[in-house]
Amino acid sequence: MEHEDIGQAVVRLDAVKKYYMVGEFVVKAVDGVSLAIAQGEFTAIMGPSGSGKSTMMNLIGCLDVPTGGTIYIDGEATSGMDEEELAYLRNRKVGFVFQQFNLLGKLTALENVMTPLLYRGMPSGERKERAASALERVGLRDRMLHRPNELSGGQKQRVAIARALVTGPSLLLADEPTGALDSSTGLQIMEEFENLNNDGLTVVLVTHDQSLGMRCRRQIRVRDGHLEGGGEDVL
């Protein structure tokens, strides 16, 4: 079809809605959003807080299920999947990077990166090997056996990136990944994403930061649960 030239859509949202009940009121966090993110894109989902961008990220990452509409990951509809199937999908297709790093404090950097592979039932030796090479890729070869509390903020976020990469996901989802970092470290992390995207990885960055968003090749703006721009042009 018309977007075949930019490759298959890694993510496609088709009239997706997410409504919450808060007390007696219905909150329409995401209200009829359609968009597609193609293989190899570097996309920013931007919007002020409360705009529904985090809910959108959760839906794309299969952490949440929509109230209406359909989400496709790598062409596969996620509607009707149960928790086991969604977990399987997250493990294979999506790599998460969070604002607060979300590393497991008792584990070393290497063990943290090994964790997603554990849920595939991969043998320990192979897990270790893959995790080590992922950490090497983000420049933390000599920090592998350190625990999170022995690492700087930038290093923690690199461990998180390595953990997201290690499974070879179709999509890297980053939620305000520089939000907890000082600006120069933030820029380094941003460069890391740019490098990964140059290597062909599809990256979706959720941010309220204009300057960060503008560094991405494509911007999708969200306000009050609707797309303000950037969503339709690839559909």
Partner: peptide, 16 residues
């Protein structure tokens, strides 16, 4: 709880 959330995000199924 948070650890459980992280593990789930990384692909741990309810069974796991």
């Amino acid at each position: 709880t948070r650890e459980i959330g992280v593990r789930k995000a990384l692909g741990a199924s309810p069974q796991v």
